[in-house]
Amino acid sequence: MSEATGKTRLIVVSGLSGSGKSVALRTLEDLDYYCVDNLPSALMPAFVRAVSEDAGLHPKLAVGVDVRNRADDLDRLPGVLAGLAEVGIDYELVFLDTRDDVLIKRYSETRRRHPLSGDGLGLAGAIAVERKLMQPTAAIADRVIDTSELNVHQLRRLVIAELGMSAGTLTLLFESFAYKRGVPTDADFVFDARCLPNPHWNAQLRPLTGRDAPVRAWLEAQGDAALFLEQLRTFLDTWLPRFRNEGRSYVTTCIGCTGGRHRSVHLVERLAEHFRGTYEQVLTYHRELE
């Protein structure tokens, strides 16, 4: 039951460790979902009542469920979800899956510890045990998403496009980046801020970012930076409504500078502030800061 009906919506995010569940939950949180990770199934009905029904605090909820939950708790999940449906809670169970070879590569690159790697299990063995334990959850999922070929940015955009949006709304994503690390591949608009005065060359501002007040004040005092921002606003104010009228669900606007820490971050933050007064869902992502 969507927001249009005024009822609570619950997204349960599950999947294999390393498949991107944390990224999905963080993205849903940015989309104004009230998120809790690793909540025991038995506590889910009480959580829904406390946050949405009794207190009327939040109609959009997301819960992470994975192998850190005990086996008996995972077995209890189908009954818990059925009970929620009986009282009118619209839920969707999303399972993130990833090929074993990709999971092994991700763990090797990040040097993180697999939650089942104790008890003398190596990484491959831990993944095999986890896949077996999570198979019943995957079997009842409303949607299984294979993240093997998705990077963090692509998964984030997929969640925005397919899970997090209100029906009929246009979600705006403003992203800052450094040109030295390449242009984001899924951008709809790309603007180059390297022509603007660079706070990096000010020793006092160099350790800060475009989110900090001194950098903001310094850039706002530069005539070119102020003009650049004004013209960006005018351009997007003119053309974004055309995208919405054509039925587009999201638009990604990327702004780059040399290091992705000052000018682009400042412009992204200012644009987001401006468009939050017009659009329901406006997100920011600073690639080089996160």
Rank of each mutant, 00 (worst) to 15 (best):
I127W: 01
V129L: 15
E130A: 08
E130W: 09
R131P: 02
Q135H: 11
T137F: 05
A139L: 03
I140D: 04
R143S: 11
R143K: 14
R143W: 13
T147C: 01
S148G: 08
L150K: 11
L150F: 12
N151F: 12
N151M: 13
N151C: 14
R156K: 15
A161T: 14
A161I: 01
E162G: 00
E162K: 12
G164H: 08
G164T: 08
G164R: 06
M165I: 14
G168V: 10
L170A: 00
T171Q: 01
L173D: 10
F174R: 02
S176M: 02
S176E: 01
S176F: 00
F177G: 00
A178Y: 01
Y179H: 11
V183Q: 15
V183C: 15
D186Y: 06
A187V: 00
A187R: 01
A187G: 03
D188M: 07
F189C: 09
F189L: 07
A193G: 04
R194E: 10
R194I: 03
C195K: 11
L196A: 09
P197L: 04
N198T: 06
P199D: 13
H200R: 10
W201P: 05
A203P: 13
A203H: 12
A203E: 15
L205H: 02
P207L: 07
P207W: 01
T209R: 04
G210H: 01
G210Y: 03
R211H: 15
P214Y: 01
V215Y: 00
L219P: 04
E220G: 10
A221V: 05
A221K: 05
A221M: 02
G223Y: 05
G223H: 00
G223S: 11
G223D: 08
A225T: 10
A226W: 03
L227P: 00
L229V: 10
R233L: 13
T234N: 13
F235Y: 14
F235A: 13
L236G: 00
L236T: 08
T238D: 06
T238K: 06
L240S: 00
P241L: 08
R242M: 03
R242P: 02
F243E: 05
R244K: 15
N245I: 02
E246K: 07
E246F: 05
G247F: 05
Y250M: 11
V251G: 10
T253F: 02
I255E: 03
G256Y: 05
T258H: 06
G260V: 06
R261C: 12
R261K: 15
H262A: 14
S264K: 04
S264L: 01
V265P: 00
H266L: 05
L267A: 12
E269T: 14
L271C: 08
